[in-house]
Design a protein around this nucleic acid. Structure first.
Lengths: 168, 168
DNA sequence: ACTGAAAATCCCTTAAG
DNA sequence: CTTAAGGGATTTTCAGT
């Protein structure tokens, strides 16, 4: 694989997180409504200890919130696409995200290193809606677009962090 | 924008979802730990009614679960990349997702229409880890890769569905 | 389908060791 | 971090409309 040069510091990056914290995060990723009591049973900790740790995780910004997982299909948004955008005028100040933020069909907005400046993930109902959306994006941000249609999604949102909470 | 031909059926697609359901989904997207009591207060429904509707939303597969939102940065995974993969041998049966599923760094896996077959979203700690990951992906699935590094993410996971739950 | 209330349960919080 | 316990809130059910 890779020829590891010796590291100056044998540290793991910011990730100074204990094993218990990782387990808790993993459990909350799997079920964000789990009670502190149940989290305690699953980790062997007392309810109070879990409460403390989860609160700290929230304060440290490791856990930023909780949300329902919703099926776009069931919501009538069966068409997903990835859109690369490039500004028509590269000399203009780059406020593309600000100009696009109000467009709710855009689920993700990444600034990327490459020929194009941003990659968006969008969800719509029909090809016609996609056509409309592209027009809105182009005119709102003065960009050209290159669209890749998603055919299917074997998996999504699997939070790499979940590996941290795996049962060993 | 687009020249709408008259629709054969003036239906809204599968989305036969009432306004109340949309509001509930929106609220649960914003706070997945909200209690039925509070959901009731927010929608003007009784606790029981909320309970019924949320249960039905879960049964219908609209709400598929609940999860904590976790900051990859805080977890020590500050480097995100999008990887397009294309099979070396296009005649071989396409079991790329199965071959990649065990690689936990891969958060999303989309099958796409385009020159390349799949687009992956991955998270790692360092460029070195990305290098390793790419090698593992290539050898596990016998594919070539094209990697786009994410510089920053103005927003992510904004669930287009949230628009449904907006305050009018 | 929603309301309202009652019952049972569970949860959070605090305190003390 | 644990145990213990109080008080409170929440889930869940059920009958009624």
């Amino acid at each position: 694989m890779r020829n590891d040069p010796p590291r100056v510091q044998p540290l793991d990056y910011p990730s100074a997180m204990e094993d218990l914290d990782r387990r808790l995060v993993g459990l909350l990723l799997a079920d964000g409504r789990m009670s502190y009591t149940d989290l305690g049973k699953a980790t062997g900790l007392s309810t109070s200890a879990v409460h403390q740790r989860v609160r700290r995780l929230e304060e440290r910004g490791v856990v930023t919130g909780y949300t329902a997982q919703v099926s776009p299909d069931a919501l009538g948004l069966p068409l997903t696409a990835l859109i690369s955008v490039a500004p028509f005028d590269p000399s203009a100040p780059d406020d593309v995200p600000d100009r696009l933020r109000h467009i709710t069909e855009i689920e993700d907005c990444h600034s990327v290193a490459g020929v194009e400046s941003y990659i968006l993930k969008v969800r719509v109902s029909t090809p016609g809606d996609l056509e409309d959306l592209l027009a809105r994006i182009r005119s709102a941000a003065n960009v050209s677009t290159r669209t890749t249609v998603v055919l299917s999604t074997p998996w999504e949102g699997r939070s790499a962090s979940a590996a941290a909470g795996e049962v060993s």
